[in-house]
Design a protein around this nucleic acid. Structure first.
Length: 110
DNA sequence: ACGTTGACCTATA
DNA sequence: GTATAGGCCAACG
């Protein structure tokens, strides 16, 4: 049961709960925190996380298409891809291969 | 308080 | 499967 005030904090909490070698989508997180249509806001929280003092594995969060949409916001054009490859994922054309296989749904797992 | 922006998602052709 | 259109919510100026 989650009922906090800060929307960003909730997103960061869920993202931090993502296990190693797993990836999820913004819509899944938004739905888990109780905002099924606030997928865009989730991405906004990721942007704030970079400025925040909290360490959030935002590279594990991608869009529904498995595309690394926010790779440009990691300070480098290939930082997110490198991180995902380091996790053991296969990136192809800025998109995660077998994304469905490594998908991790918080609402389903938690 | 209003209008715009944004690391999105779903639906239709 | 790809392309285009509309809609959703929250934060920022």
């Amino acid at each position: 049961m989650i009922q906090q005030n800060d929307f960003f904090i909730q997103v960061w909490e869920v993202v931090k709960l993502i296990p190693f070698g797993k990836v999820t989508s913004y819509g899944a997180i938004a739905r888990y925190i109780g905002a099924p249509g606030a997928a865009r806001t989730v991405g906004y929280a990721m942007n704030a996380s970079h400025k925040s003092s909290i360490s959030v594995p935002a590279h594990r969060v991608v869009n529904r298409n498995g595309l690394l949409t926010g790779k440009a916001h990691f300070g480098g054009p290939d930082v997110m891809q490198q991180l995902l490859e380091s996790e053991g994922h296969c990136i192809e054309n800025n998109a995660i291969k077998d994304f469905r296989a490594s998908f991790w749904d918080p609402c389903k797992e938690l």
